[in-house]
Amino acid sequence: MALEKATKITSALMGAGKEYVCLMRLHGPVPEDVLLKTIQEFVGPVYQRPPLRSSVKRALRIRRIYYIRVLEIESKDVLMQVGCERGTYMRKLCHDIGEVLGVGAHMQELRRTRVGPFREDESLVTLQDLLDAYVLWRDEGYEKCIRKFILPVEKAVEHLPKIVIRDSAVDAICHGAALAAPGVLRVESGIKKGNLVAIFTQKGELVALAKALVRSEQIVVMDKGLVAKPTRVMMNPGTYPPFWREKKKT
C-alpha cells in the first residue's frame, strides 16, 4: 500500500510480476507423474481469455508463467506457487490445467505472495502491528518498529530499470523536464524505447518515473539529446539546486 506522495508510483507496481500460492482442486484422480508433468507444461507463455466478468477486453492474450512449484499434493488438492506476469488469471490457469489433464479442476483458494519487489518477508505487516508501531512512535517516540514497516518509496520501483543522474540534472527533472544524455551517470541494461524507467540520484533517492525515449545501449554512447521523459515526479523541486537556470542564460 502506498502512502501520500508514494501513491504516484502504484502504476509501476500494477505492471510488475506477481507470485501466488494457489490451491487447485482436481475433479478426478490423476497419477502424480502425469500431474507434475502437465503442470510444468504451463511454464512459459500461455494463452488466456479474460473471464466473462472482467474489467478488461475479453480478447485472447498471452501471459508468461515464470515458474510453478508444486508445494503439496493431497489426493485431489494441489498446492502450488506460481510466478507470473501481471494480469495472469490464476483461476483460469487452474481451469486450463484441469482441461489438459482431462478431469477438470478449479481454484479453491488464492493468496498473493509477491508483487514485484514485495514478498512475504519481515516487512509484511498486519493492520494491528502497523497500528501498534505507529502509536509507539507517535506517543513514545520509539522509531524502530515503524521504520521496519514503512518502507521508502524507492523499494517499490526496485524492479524497474534504473538511470542514475548527476546532481546538476536533478532539479530540472523535478520541474518535469526531460532527461538529457549529459546528465546520465549510470544506466541499467535492457531498457527499450517506451519502457518505464526509474530516475535516481547518486544518494539513492527516486527523482521520477519516466518513459525511455531510447535503448540502454544508446543512452551510454549518446553525448547529447533526450533519453527519458518523466511521467511521475516524486522529488520536490528545490531539493537540489537549479543548475539548469544558469545554463539557460548562457
Binding site: 500500500m1 502506498a2 502512502l3 501520500e4 506522495k5 508514494a6 514485495f118 518477508d121 516487512s123 509484511l124 505487516v125 498486519t126 493492520l127 502497523l130 512512535w137 522509531e143 515503524i146 521504520r147 514497516f149 514503512i150 518502507l151 521508502p152 518509496v153 524507492e154 523499494k155 517499490a156 548527476r166 546532481d167 536533478v170 546520465v184 551517470l185 549510470r186 544506466v187 540520484t201 547518486q202 544518494k203 539513492g204 533517492e205 543512452i219 551510454v220 516524486m234 522529488m235 531539493t239 537540489y240 539546486p241
Partner: peptide
C-alpha cells in the same frame, strides 16, 4: 557512463529520512 561526486549538502539517502518524511512517501507491505 561517467563518475561524479554527489554534493552532501543536497538531498539525503532514503535510510536517513525522518519518520514523517518516510510516511510522506512510504510504502507498506500489508
Amino acid at each position: 557512463k561517467a563518475e561524479e561526486e554527489t554534493d552532501p549538502r543536497y538531498g539525503k539517502p532514503p535510510e536517513e529520512r525522518t519518520v514523517p518524511e518516510l510516511i510522506s512517501k512510504g510504502i507498506v507491505n500489508i
